[in-house]
Every structure is written in C-alpha cells, then in structure tokens.
C-alpha cells in the first residue's frame, strides 16, 4: 500500500477536524479498509485511528433501546450478555460476520460507514429501524444507507453509536458466500408492536426493504405468510456468484428462515 500519515486523536472533536480533509480516512477496525489499501483501491493521504477515543465503545440498555458504541467489535456484540438478552438476533448476526479474527477487530461503525452491499450489519440496522448517532446528528437507518458503498455521512462526520429499538421478535438468516463469507443473500426480519420490517442485504446494489414481504408478515408473522411473495429479480445483482433469479429465490428462502428463527 501507499504510505500515509497516521493520526490517533484522543477526542471526537480532534478526529472530526482531521477528517474534514477529504484525502483522509477514518480507521476503525480496518478489516475492509486495510485490504482495500493493500490492493491500492484506496490510497488515503492520512488515516485517523479512532481506537484512542473514549466514548465510542460500550453497550447498554437505555429504556427500551439498545445503545451500541460505534467502535464495538463484532466479537463484543456477539458475546455481550446485554445484546443477547435484548436482541439475540443481533448478537447472532455479529457472531456470523467473517471469521473469529475479523470479528475481534471489525467494528459496527466501520461496517455501516462502509455500507458494503453484502455486509450483515446494514441489514440489522434497517431491519430493526435503528438510528445512527453521529457527532453532528441522528440519522434514521431508512435515510442512512443511500447506495452501494454510499451513506448519508458527510466529510468530518463520525458515527458515535447505533440505537436499536428492542423488537418483540427478530431473526436473521444468511446464505454466505463460502469463500468470502459475505452474504450472497441475508434477510433480517423484525416485529415491534404493529410494525414489521424485512431488510435484505447481499442481493441488490445496497441493503433494501422488501415491502411486499413486510405487508404479508404484518397480517400474520409466520413463514407461511411469505408463500407466493417474492422480490423482483430485475433489480438484483447478477454475477459469477449467483444469478439474479437465484438471488430472488434465496431472498424468499432466507426470509422464511429468518421468520422461523425470530
């Protein structure tokens, strides 16, 4: 990789002022950024390491909302008794990202800021109706994920935590690519009072909600409600890993498994 300047600020304010430079990049767990830099697909002039900042970690329940610090490693979320109690599907999702070594470094904030179209966490955020808190504002997940590797984040804006409202039921099922372990298709479902959410990752150019499925599950939250309900293949990815038709089929299968797991 090309060389760069390295900063480890101790405060969000300092990190934000360094990050205002568009040639700088924030370094969280580095499990995507560093491989990308090694391939020279990214060549930032400076890296701003967020690991020295207090206040970006910690997992706690506040009322009926689960607060997860942006620098929480996947392994921490997977093993947290608080997460397992409040939203077991979220703990299970975190425990299925990458492999144990990646989970020891990769972070929630890093994953959603990158918004890889096949990443797991965007499905959890959208499927639970989470709110992404930054140093500047709070962004509903519905407005946060704007496209392939694109988010609503601005230069100098740093995710501080994610607020997950605790659902009555939630489940996640993914069909992992056996080589990369990214989701070929992953579906997160949740039910909270009357609201049902179905978020799909891996299948399209970015995470999206399957509204027909949400409607079907709103009537009755059971796998059988999804019989005959599908997502149109026309909008889905079609590549060497899977055709669009196959992905559309998998969305149906994974959605039913997610409901069964919920």
């Amino acid at each position: 990789m090309y060389d760069f300047a390295f900063h480890r600020p101790a405060s969000i304010r300092k990190a934000a002022s360094l990050a205002a430079d568009e040639d700088a990049k924030l370094l969280a767990g580095g499990q995507t950024l560093l491989p990308t830099m090694k391939q020279r697909l990214a060549a930032p002039e400076a890296l701003i390491d967020l690991s020295g900042i207090e206040g970006l970690t910690g997992i706690a329940m506040k009322g009926r909302t689960l607060h997860v610090g942006a620098m929480s490693r996947h392994a921490e979320v997977a093993e947290s008794p608080v997460v397992r109690e409040a939203i077991p599907a979220l703990a299970a999702l975190a425990g299925g990202i990458g492999d144990p070594h990646v989970r020891n470094l990769g972070t929630l904030g890093g994953s959603i800021a990158n918004n890889d179209p096949a990443a797991d966490y965007p499905a959890a955020c959208l499927g639970l109706g989470a709110t992404i808190a930054t140093n500047k504002r709070r962004i509903p997940a519905d407005d946060f994920f704007t496209g392939m590797f694109e988010t609503a984040l601005q230069d100098g804006e740093i995710i501080t935590k994610v607020l997950f409202p605790v659902p009555r039921r939630a489940g996640y099922a993914k069909f992992a690519n056996p080589a990369s372990r990214y989701a070929l298709v992953g579906v997160f479902v949740s039910k909270r009072s009357r609201q049902v959410r179905v978020a799909v990752t891996g299948a399209g150019p970015g995470v999206f909600r399957a509204t027909d499925m949400e409607e079907a599950l709103s009537k009755r939250f059971a796998a059988r409600s999804l019989d005959g309900v599908s997502v149109p293949a026309g909008d889905l990815n079609d590549d060497i890993h899977a055709s669009a038709d196959y992905r559309a089929h998998l969305v149906g299968v994974m959605a039913k498994r997610a409901v069964d797991a919920a």
């Binding site: 390295f6 480890r8 370094l27 580095g30 499990q31 560093l34 491989p35 890296l47 390491d49 690991s51 392994a75 144990p100 070594h101 990646v102 020891n104 470094l105």
Partner: peptide
C-alpha cells in the same frame, strides 16, 4: 489476548 490476522493490522495500531 485476542487472535487477529497480523497481515490486516498496522504495527502503529499496536502501540
């Protein structure tokens, strides 16, 4: 104490 891949971590992150 945590297992990590040393090819995907910078030496300076281990300060």
């Amino acid at each position: 104490g945590k297992a990590v891949k040393a090819c995907t971590m910078l030496a300076v992150q281990c300060e």
